[in-house]
Design a protein around this nucleic acid. Structure first.
Length: 364
DNA sequence: ATCATCACG
DNA sequence: ACGTACGTGATGATA
């Protein structure tokens, strides 16, 4: 990674070599005390200046090195975690084998470690290149099958949200649909869709007007208005949130659609509001996790019954990655969609997007 | 061992 | 008065 070196050359014209750029403490003190960049916002829990990406973007134009520090951070992350980190994990069979913990996450999701293969980069073009390194065995094809908007569908089902259910039945773009109705327009701008998307996700997490304001980068009053309009559009979500908050508080757990209990942290950690958010989110995340587990079992049963060589390789919460030999490809793709979409009948259709390719990036 | 940061759904 | 989204794991620095 030449990028790291070239960033550092310029950075060190302004920051002495003795400062460790990997030390947030040293970097923060130099930026905000020596260079006297204006510091806005809160410090960390231990009283240090924050130097994370968000904090650096606040002073982006204050000094030529700031953009370079951000760029260097990104490159260092990719190198340490994904270039060097994953290289160490290659086994003698030429593959990387993760460990899935099946009974660790409260909501019922799997967790992946040593190494974590559920956080391979995708959001930046540069990071995404790593996905090209994940390939099937010689001559085979990689398949990626992911549930489209599964958590929002589950929420619409659990809360029986009339307008959401209809939109999913009509196979509409759900964020655009939300924006059309919230902003009362016929054509939605990309900014309006982006905002609607953030609001939809925020609801799954049980966000407060404050959290929403922070995310949308609007003031709290505006966020409150957004929430009111949202709840007018999807009133059942508000009722659902209230019901789950009370349930979690009363029993100490909430349940997924299949009756699996998710325990709510009541005493200790953080505050009552945190418990309330978990009570709202856990049935949604947990039901989606249950459905994915069930789907994986059905897929495995199917492969055995049909004597197929196709193998499941990875699960990333709402997605599975498989490798398939050429003679099985079409049959598997067609069958996968059927199995996954019919795994459990909600009041809403399930939608599965499937891609194929010679590597993980292409299959997406 | 904990913190700060950042990668993912 | 305060702080503010859910669920994770890996890394390097620091204590």
């Amino acid at each position: 990674m030449k990028k790291i070196k070239s960033c550092e050359e310029t950075i060190h014209q302004y920051i002495p070599e003795e400062i460790n750029l990997d030390s947030p403490k040293q970097l923060g003190e130099f930026l905000f005390e020596e260079l006297k960049l204006p510091y806005k916002g809160r410090k960390t829990a231990t009283g240090q200046y924050k130097t994370d990406s968000k904090a650096l973007h606040k002073v982006y134009d204050e000094h030529v090195i700031v953009p370079l520090l951000i760029e260097r951070r990104g490159a260092v992350k990719l190198k340490s975690t994904y270039v060097d980190g994953l290289q160490k994990e290659i086994q003698s069979d030429g593959r990387i084998h993760t460990t899935y913990l099946q009974n660790f996450v409260n909501t019922g999701r799997l967790s992946s470690r040593q190494p974590n293969l559920q956080n391979i980069p995708i959001r930046t073009e540069e990071g995404r290149q790593f996905r090209k390194l994940f390939v099937p065995q010689e001559g085979w094809t990689l398949i990626a099958a992911d549930y489209s908007q599964i958590e929002l569908r589950v929420m619409a089902h659990l809360a029986q949200v009339k307008n959401l259910i209809q939109a999913f039945k009509d196979d509409r773009d759900i964020h655009t649909e939300t924006a059309i109705k919230m902003f009362n327009v016929e054509a939605v701008s990309s900014e309006q869709r982006r905002q609607a998307k953030i609001i939809n996700f925020s609801m799954i997490y049980g966000a407060s007007p404050y959290g929403l304001a922070d995310n949308l980068k609007v003031d709290v009053e505006t966020a409150k208005i957004f929430m009111k309009v949202y709840f007018d559009l999807y009133p059942e979500i508000q009722d659902y949130m209230k019901a789950k908050e009370e349930e979690g508080q009363k029993y100490g757990f909430v349940e997924t659609l299949f009756g699996r209990k998710c325990f709510i942290p009541l005493e200790n950690e953080r505050d009552a509001k945190f418990s309330a958010r978990v009570s709202v989110n856990a049935p949604v995340q947990g039901t989606a996790a249950d459905m994915m587990r069930l789907a994986m079992i059905r897929v495995d049963d199917f492969f055995r019954k049909e004597n197929l060589k196709t193998k499941m390789l990875l699960q990333i919460h709402d997605e599975i990655i498989l490798e398939t030999p050429p003679e099985e490809k079409d049959f598997v793709v067609q069958s996968l969609r059927k199995i996954m979409e019919s795994v459990y009948a909600l009041n809403i259709p399930l939608k599965v997007d499937i891609g194929v390719g010679k590597n993980w990036d292409e299959a997406h």
